[in-house]
Design a protein around this nucleic acid. Structure first.
Lengths: 257, 257
DNA sequence: GCCCATTGTTGCGCTTGACGAAACGAAGTC
DNA sequence: GACTTCGTTTCGTCAAGCGCAACAATGGGC
């Protein structure tokens, strides 16, 4: 199966090495033989590539039986990536404050390749830390962040961005017409909600972050268990989220006459 | 400069490509010529490698003047890495080693709703063992773990996290001013001690675990009866604890640049 | 406006470095 | 204990990646 080899042009061995990273990202872990089969190369070739990746700590062995998985070098590179993004830089202190004020987890996401890419996360003070979403691609129609990001698109862009609207729970919006109505409401009220739409028991609030031109460049969300985000508390959280997102927007140059 | 030289062995072109990622992580962004000079290769070589990296979205152009920086592909890989890589799982083998080296009990704790929540515990080899604390909420001001976790907070967060400082023994720190001094010392020296502060005869050493952003996300401690953790042995245990916590931090992506 | 300096980008031969086959050692399985 | 299957190593061959040099595009200085 010729999968990620679409990047046909380029330096062959580098291309293959990077494909290995993608394979490991997809499968979690794998042995040399398995990887070699996936790429369609000899196992000695795969071994040499993996060894090179390992010397840079981008992959590591899982102790038992010499299987490989992605390593800490990736995280270090990711840290450098987000550290450079001025969006994350500007947003971080405000996210911290928002997380402290609400006690819930705060996320920042942007639109990337038809799904929401989470750039940063600040854990709330509450116990159960949700797993880290950073770097994950999340469906757009079933999350508050996704709705906010979609609400910033023009109609024709919207069609391009949306694939099929998968069902996650019985509250997931799966009809396009209904989604359009929802997006209009989001645009109107300046924030989005998602209650039990991606996962039962999970509630999230998101508000848009705008650049100097007024475009929606990112979305900031607060999410937590639905029982902690009931009706009365939700209003307060919404207000905090909207003003935090507006503050970040200001720092990015929005609203300066 | 500790770049490609140490990773001498391996597939040359892959080695160089990965070095480019490291260079960009360090410098933020750079042109082809600049990168080529850094690696000691011809510009055209650097260009081809960068182009290959770009086709996998690990680097991207900054629009203006064709300079390059790390791309979102890195974040996607990082997402796959952290998805499987939670704190307890990463810390466990290192906790085991630390418990074996010291013969004492090792704990991992995080901050949760104004107290320390113990996530994991590895019993030491010694016969005399403390009860299992996992899942327990423990006061912050009277434990080494608590001090470490508090030391990572800003001043206003500190006020919110601390209630009244209960007295457990005559060594318990109960005055806020004194606690602040203690926390400053903890921040400074990179570890915390608690001798007879929660319980007479109980000594503990704790060191911070940091994430990629440098935030204190957890605390790792070694604890045992005070008579086994006397002055001379304490230094050794402190050193082991600090380096173990640092190792976990590294696995979570801390320590770039 | 023009020129020059410097950048990223692209063909092109030469040779080095990466490839695949096969042998090896270790671990598990029946 | 033989068999299987894995990761790892060695080695000769050849194509893939390299450096060179020419090209294009941009910006700054005069």
């Amino acid at each position: 199966m010729r999968n990620a080899a679409e990047a046909g042009t380029g330096v062959q061995s580098v291309d293959r090495a990077l494909s290995i990273l993608e394979v490991l990202a997809r499968t979690g872990e794998g042995g040399v033989t398995e990887i070699a089969a996936e790429l369609g190369v000899h196992k000695s070739t795969a071994f040499r590539l993996v060894a090179t990746l390992e010397s840079h700590r981008l992959v590591e062995q899982t102790g038992d039986r010499g299987r490989y998985r992605l390593g800490v070098g990736i995280l270090r590179l990711a840290g450098a990536t987000t550290a450079r993004l001025d969006l994350v830089q500007e947003a971080r202190p405000i996210c911290r404050q928002l997380a402290a004020d609400t006690g819930e987890t705060v996320n920042v996401a942007v639109l990337s390749d038809g799904s929401a890419l989470y750039l940063d996360q600040v854990a709330g003070s509450s116990a159960l830390q949700p797993h880290n979403w950073v770097g994950q691609h999340i469906p757009l129609h079933a999350t508050s962040n996704g709705k906010v990001l979609l609400s910033g698109l023009a109609d024709h862009e919207l069609d391009a961005a949306l694939g099929t609207l998968s069902t996650y729970t019985e509250h997931t919006i799966t009809r396009r017409a209904k989604l359009r109505d929802e997006l209009a409401r989001v645009r109107d009220q300046g924030y989005a909600l998602a209650v039990d739409e991606l996962e039962v028991g999970l509630t999230a609030v998101a508000a848009p972050v705008r650049n100097a031109h007024g475009d929606v460049v990112a979305s900031m969300s607060v999410s937590g268990p639905s029982f902690r985000l009931g009706a009365e508390r939700l209003d307060h959280v919404v207000a905090l989220t909207v003003s935090s997102a507006a503050e970040v927007s200001h720092r990015l140059g929005w609203g300066h006459r």
